[in-house]
Simulated scan of single mutants.
Amino acid sequence: MASVPVSHLILFIASLVIAAGVVGTVTTGVDRVSAAVEDAGIDATEQLRTDVTVISDASAGVYNESSENVTLLIKNTGTQRLNPDGSGLDVVFDGAYVPPDATDGELVSAGDGAAWDRGDVLRLTIDVSQVDGTGGTLDPGTDHRVYLTVNGDEELFQFRTEGS
């Protein structure tokens, strides 16, 4: 008769040990999922706060043939502060990635100049001679596309070079 309570006690202790292991594993998993959701929320907030707009006029001659540069005016219309030199921008010109050393950014209108704030305008100069596939110059009368991304915000600017 004494063997029944002993076997029940052993099964009870074993079930407690198993339950403790399961709770530990589940708690760790929940913590990891919670941290991942929080990180994704922060990233989404940053993306939602970032917005830029190209305010250059496509018909105003953004390409300078003598210097082989394309110059765009880009306005920060979001609430996210961006790098004042435009180093956070990813630029694709006519389907070719533009390396960071082929671009130069300068704030045209800025409050303190320490950051590219909402309402500030950045003058972005792209050295076409350093972009693969362009041959260093752009043919007159051809269409071109500049694709900009920053923190998930995407902007497309299309223009035609002057000439026949």
Rank of each mutant, 00 (worst) to 15 (best):
A14H: 02
L89E: 00
S7C: 05
V98A: 05
D139V: 09
V26T: 10
D132L: 11
A44I: 14
F157W: 05
S109N: 14
F12R: 09
Y147H: 15
E162K: 14
L148W: 02
I42L: 15
S56V: 05
E46Y: 01
G41Q: 13
D90K: 03
D39P: 02
I55P: 09
E65R: 07
G29S: 14
V131G: 00
S15R: 06
G135F: 09
P100E: 05
D132S: 14
E46T: 15
T142P: 01
P5S: 09
E162L: 14
L138I: 06
L148E: 06
L89Q: 01
V22Y: 07
V121R: 05
N76S: 04
T71D: 02
V91K: 11
G88C: 06
F159P: 10
V131N: 01
N83D: 13
G163A: 09
T103N: 00
S66M: 12
D85M: 06
Q47G: 12
T142V: 07
G135P: 10
V70L: 12
V108S: 05
V128E: 11
D153V: 04
L16F: 14
G105Q: 01
N69F: 06
L82N: 04
K75I: 01
I126C: 02
L107P: 01
G163P: 09
D43L: 14
Q80F: 08
L9S: 13
H144V: 03
G88K: 06
A60D: 08
R123V: 00
G61S: 11
D31K: 12
A114L: 13
A44E: 14
T77W: 00
A20W: 11
G141M: 07
V131W: 01
W116D: 06
P100N: 09
V52A: 05
D139L: 14
A14T: 14
T53F: 04
G113K: 03
I10Q: 09
A110E: 06
H8E: 12
S59C: 03
T28Y: 13
Y147I: 08
Q80T: 10
G21D: 07
E65S: 15
V121G: 04
G152P: 06
A35G: 11
S164N: 15
V98F: 02
G78N: 07
G24M: 04
A58F: 10
T149Q: 14
S67V: 02
Y97A: 15
G21R: 09
T149I: 07
T25Q: 08
F159S: 03
G61W: 06
T79V: 11
G95Y: 08
E162I: 06
